[in-house]
Design a protein around this nucleic acid. Structure first.
Lengths: 327, 327
DNA sequence: TTGAAAGCGCTAACAC
DNA sequence: GTGTTAGCGCTTTCAA
């Protein structure tokens, strides 16, 4: 059997309360002498606090839960780094749960695990919840925040990039460089993010007096394969001179297929991507990107979770364009 | 306030015991009529079980904990997929905790979080624990298993690739293709894995009557940058005709630096990598790899965690060589 | 088929 | 400084 606080108390010749106080560092509630004895015995017994009991009686937890998708786009890592770093600063533990990309059952499972544990807050990374899971989350009384998933309404607190601006800035950047025929590929236009980006892109085109031909916008799910097949659809002699990939991975797909077609990048075809993960830097040519502030999303999200007063305010983290070799 | 079992019981006009039985699906302990009423009221109150209380009283948990490193080599993802899939099959929840790569403090923090929660089992992925953390884990009475981290001794249950074989097979593959001067790069020889791989590599060389020159083995920490600088150290006119990278990422570093030197891959320099993640397939030329069975490690690790009888048996998952364009 | 009661391990008044 | 006591929300005998 695992040692309990009682075992320690008994062996140390004190009450459980005293042990509790010593182990919780409640300064000034015990003498150094007892403290030392208690600590020694606790260690010798391999005593570990039973968190279930602690949380049950204190009615609070020092844990924040993060729900992430097992997505193939790889930016979550940076968001998580941000969350971790900020959580450590506040002396909180972070537990992460996987939920499939668009699987309501897995989402619910992850969510429920967190709610039942009454975590201090929930961060949902890059996942769009189904309606009933959203209701479950909202009914739970637990502070939450969506990272990198803007919902259509401002009623849901989220931290993300301004996806309209992403589309707009990317297109504008290419237009400024002389491109007039620009493709946008692998975007999931069934979601808000994709819709916003396409809108931004269209706005930039229109603003420059350019029209968008049918076929220039190719939808997908941000994957590598979507990039490949989009480029394949454009063919060996694409009628665009530049393509924006919906993610770094998708852009690499475009790039590889373009090379396959013997197209010189960036001379015959410019490629730009969205995200700005390490991938953009390790492929050749390196990809010019609209880089998102993922790390900051993690930091900010964690901070806001703890600051109840700001619960419903959504926020954008800044984006920036990093010029590399592909444009 | 959040609704408790008592609230539900009261409103349903039954005892807490009955509510508990209904909600835990203890067949045959209640009538369908009460069950229906209880369920309806529970839902209307947004009642959620308090897991702390459940675990406190039942003394067990349906959760397995996974400790992962925030490493830059990116294979953990597949291991985690395996863990998830197998866990779902057993109706278990999985929570993941980050621990820095080699930071005993973060390791301890993660470990403690898990131990205090009395999880059903702990899986440690790609992390080498410090001695005291190892002691902490072993003293906890919780089943555990190391994935992709073989320890020097067979006393610690682990599931990993046979790293000696990885080094041996990789070198042998290249030797068979006619290479006689082969480099090995970015391996961390302060750890067991790196040591084993180097031994295997040396054995294959010796077996073929080849000697290993000073400078052919360059150490590192499996990173992209290590690959780059190793290749830089070999220079524009390397005295090897093939290089084995310690990870896919490291091999990409080698590749990029080689291309920078205007070396044709694979004609002037063959490159091979270890891991076999998606990276190897999306770079050009695609990398020939010693592919590890990461997904299977996850599956197997989870399964063995639950099967106490096999607790201390270590096991290897098979490796295979996938020929691609870089050799 | 249901209820009463005990108790899991811990913390936090409150008393001394 | 330290002990006593009550009770967090739940499950599980035991009794009815």
């Amino acid at each position: 059997m695992v040692a309990t606080i009682k075992d320690v108390a008994e062996k140390a010749g004190v009450s459980a309360a005293t042990v509790s106080r010593v182990l919780a560092h409640k300064e000034g509630f015990y003498s150094e002498v007892t403290a030392r004895r208690v600590r020694k015995i606790a260690a010798s017994l391999s005593y570990e606090k039973n968190t279930s009991a602690v949380e049950l009686v204190t009615q609070k937890s020092q844990v924040i839960g993060v729900i992430i998708s097992s997505t193939k786009t790889n930016f979550s890592e940076k968001i998580i780094d941000g969350i971790q770093d900020e959580a450590i600063r506040h002396n909180l533990s972070v537990i992460m749960l996987y939920a499939g990309q668009n699987d309501p059952v897995l989402q619910k499972r992850a969510l429920q695990t967190l709610i039942e544990r009454a975590v201090k807050g929930i961060l949902v990374v890059a996942i769009q919840f189904s309606d009933d899971n959203l209701a479950l989350l909202q009914g739970s009384q637990i502070p939450y925040r969506f990272l990198s998933t803007a919902y259509n309404s401002d009623k849901l607190p989220s931290i993300a990039s301004d996806d309209y601006q992403i589309g707009y800035q990317a297109a504008r950047y290419l237009i400024k460089r002389g491109h007039r025929r620009i493709g946008l590929v692998a975007m999931d236009t069934s979601g808000y993010i994709g819709q916003q980006r396409v809108s931004g892109y269209r706005a930039a085109m229109t603003e420059a007096g350019l029209s968008v031909k049918d076929g220039w916008v190719k939808v997908g799910m941000y994957t590598y394969e979507d990039g490949v097949s989009a480029m394949a659809a454009f063919g060996q002699h694409p009628d665009v001179t530049a393509i924006i990939g919906a993610s770094d991975l998708a852009a690499v797909g475009v790039l590889n297929q373009a090379v396959q077609f013997n197209l010189k990048v960036p001379d015959q075809l410019a490629i730009m991507s969205i995200d700005g993960t390490y991938l953009a830097e390790i492929v050749r040519p390196q990809l010019t990107t609209v880089t998102q502030g993922f790390y900051d999303m993690g930091i900010l999200g964690t901070r806001m979770l703890l600051d109840q007063t700001k619960q419903t305010t959504s926020q954008f983290t800044p984006i920036k364009i990093e010029t590399r070799q592909s444009t």
